[in-house]
Structure formats: structure tokens, C-alpha cells
Nucleic acid binder design. Structure first.
Lengths: 121, 121
DNA sequence: CCCGCTACTTGATTAAACAAGGTAGCTGCC
DNA sequence: GGCAGCTACCTTGTTTAATCAAGTAGCGGG
């Protein structure tokens, strides 16, 4: 269960992921962590998601509103702004392009190491 | 084309990419930059590749040897160590897993924003 | 009254890409 | 012989972001 991944791989991916989830449905930090787990990103903790949300709000990609809860403190629901939707579209295109390139290489079998240069042409 | 604008997306991907290229063929920094451009990663500069190579060598993933050149200073050829091959296999698996998950979401059309919670069940 | 769940926040640490700059070897040209 | 231009490598500082760890609180139940 892909819990082992290099934390660096997530960089730059989390923001579009959060934007996508928020586009699907207005949500709050705690729930987003659980939704991420549900889709397979089990290693992402609150300490990663909350700062990411603050960053996105500071950049104007999402906006928030507080909604009272019966089962705990008020929840800060986020939804994308117009700018957020635009960012999501761009970031998605960037990701798909990079993923295609990287997959194109990495999913190809590693060729057996051939020739070794000794001097130079 | 393929010029990804968000540098963060590259994080964690460059190392396996370099290991793959070196598994295909022993190579040196300057050439690796060009090979990366060839496969579509046009925005990657020397200032990114050289430190990455140093890091990989310091970690024992690759080893180097100097080969004289007729057309400039000596080239530092790198090739993966056994540890490097192992790392490549792991990192590839990690990448493919993450890419599948992220693609699964992002390549799905963004659903129209539905319901808004007003109070709480 | 305290425990446990919910929910958000902050600070310190770490990793990595990037821009910009610097050193130097080699060839060819005038 | 000297200079331009390509080849090749290395370094430094800046910025962005994820992670861990810890802390603050609201709320309900025993």
C-alpha cells in the first residue's frame, strides 16, 4: 500500500490535488486529510494539509467560511475561487505533461549496461 | 513544449530519472542535461543536475571516473552502483504508484460544484 | 471532571530546484 | 600568441514546500 513514498515526490502535487477535491465538493482540512487517505495517499498528515490550505488561501486560490459543528469545534470549509479553478487547469496540464514524460522513461525496462568510453572520439 | 513551470513538480523525480539515464548508458553531467532536454525536460539546468549527481554519488548510488576529452576538459562519467540499481527500482515503483493515483484524480473531469453545508448533521 | 475525538495552528527541520556566477580545458582563427 | 567560443564542471545563496512535533480548543460521554 504505497505508504513508502519519497516525501519529495509529493511536492507541487498536493496543491492541485486539494484544488481538485475542493472543486468536487466544498470541504475542510480534517476531512481533506481523510479524503486523501481514501484515494490512496495514506501518508499525508494534518501538518502537511493545513499549511497547504493556508498557502492556497493566501494566494487567493481558495476561500473559506466557518460552519458550526455538533461534534467538535467549527470547521473551516474551503472552496476554489475563479483563480483556483484556473490554477487547477494549468497545474493539471503541467502534471499530465510531466507524468507522460517520466512514465515514458521509467516504465520502459532498464536496458543492460553496454559500452564504456575509454578515450574519446 | 513540455516546459513545466512549477519547479516543485520535479522534486524527487530527477534522481530516478538520472539513475535511469545512467543505467541506459554511462554519461556525464553536461551530456545528461542535454539528454534530459531531448526527452522533453527542457527546463532543467546544470545548476540542478550537478548537485543532484553529487548527492547521488555521496549516497553511493552512482560512481564516477574521469575520461579525457579532445574537445574540452575531462568528463566525469557516472554509472549506477548496485545500490543505485536497487534505488532506481524502488523509486520507479513509488513514482508509478503515485502517478497512477494522481492521474486517477486529475485526469477525471472536474465535477460541477454541488451542495453547500449550512449547519451540520 | 477528565478523556477522547474533532479541528485548526505554529515552529523548527530538512530536502531539493534554481539562478547566477566562477574556473578552466581545448580548438580554431587571425 | 592571443582571444573567442564552446565544452565541462562546481559553488553559493535564495526560495518553496513537506514533515514532525507540539500545542490550543470545542465538544460529548462516562
Amino acid at each position: 500500500m504505497g505508504t513508502t513514498h519519497d516525501p519529495q515526490l509529493l511536492k507541487g502535487v498536493l496543491s492541485p490535488l486539494l484544488l481538485w477535491l475542493l472543486a468536487e465538493r466544498e470541504s475542510y482540512g480534517y476531512e481533506l486529510v481523510q479524503r486523501l487517505r481514501t484515494v490512496g495517499l495514506s501518508g499525508i498528515s494534518e501538518g502537511t494539509v493545513y499549511p497547504a490550505l493556508s498557502r492556497l488561501e493566501r494566494e487567493g486560490r481558495i476561500r473559506s467560511r466557518l460552519v458550526a459543528s455538533h461534534s467538535g469545534p467549527a470547521r473551516k470549509y474551503y472552496q476554489p475561487t475563479d483563480s483556483g479553478y484556473a490554477t487547477l487547469a494549468e497545474a493539471t496540464a503541467d502534471w499530465l505533461a510531466l507524468a507522460a514524460t517520466v512514465n515514458g522513461l521509467l516504465s520502459r525496462p532498464v536496458p543492460p549496461t553496454p559500452a564504456a568510453p575509454t578515450e574519446e572520439e
